[in-house]
Design a protein around this nucleic acid. Structure first.
Length: 205
DNA sequence: TGCCAGGCCCTCTTTAGGGCCTT
């Protein structure tokens, strides 16, 4: 079954290597052409949320004070995601936090990370920029609510993933798109996307 | 004291620099 676990973190900063911790996570399961299940939770990061990030996300120190701790939430999120390929917008960011927090609870990631930002740059280079909200507007994806909240952004990324898959099917007349092809395209240099698809078609014969 | 992310991508590049994108 072609199922993906789309994730999004809200955090106290940009780098777990400099003490940033997650404040919220959402995991959205996408199967075939739709969202089938979702998980979302605030968590107590155990560190102060800077004022500018509270303004950005709307998540305050007061909101997370009584939330479950990060270990509890990450354990539940990892169970929910299972072994499905993970998807995130600008996956290098979410991957850092996912791996760092799993390491804290002595777990390891075994699945690949698909990046909707890299795929969007390959498939829609004509857009003025590739911010998630710009892609939502440009592609007329469903409005999922307040951006910079985990569930809204994870759902937006899930709709973007479905749109990217539809675009690949349409543009290259593919019967379907699997995780291996997505990873191959996101790793390819500019101009090599067609070669990726040709190789992929050849390997399926 | 002062600074502090990091991966990807482009180009006036490749012995580098800077913008984009995530919070």
């Amino acid at each position: 079954m072609n199922t993906y676990a789309v994730i999004d973190f809200e955090t106290t900063g940009l780098s777990p290597g400099h003490g940033a911790r997650p404040t919220e996570i959402a995991v959205v399961l996408v199967r075939r052409d739709r969202i089938v299940k979702s998980y979302q939770s605030l968590m107590n990061p155990g560190v102060h949320i800077p004022h500018e990030i509270q303004s950005l996300t709307g998540i305050t120190n007061q909101m997370v004070r009584k939330a479950p701790d990060v270990a509890t939430v990450m354990s539940a999120a990892a169970e929910f995601a299972g072994d499905h390929p993970l998807v995130a917008d600008n996956a290098s960011f979410d991957r850092k936090f996912w791996d760092a927090e799993l390491q804290r609870i002595r777990r390891r990631r075994h699945q690949a990370f698909v990046c909707s930002l890299l795929l969007s740059r390959r498939l829609f280079p004509q857009f003025p920029n590739h911010k998630l909200q710009t892609l939502v507007r440009s592609l007329r994806l469903p409005d999922t609510g307040r951006n910079h909240r985990a569930l809204a952004d994870a759902e937006a990324t899930a709709h973007l993933l479905l749109r990217l898959q539809q675009e690949l099917v349409r543009r290259f007349r593919l019967p379907s798109v699997d995780c291996r092809l997505l990873l191959s395209i996101q790793r390819a240099c500019r101009g090599q996307m067609e070669a990726c698809v040709r190789n992929h078609k050849g390997s399926r014969k």
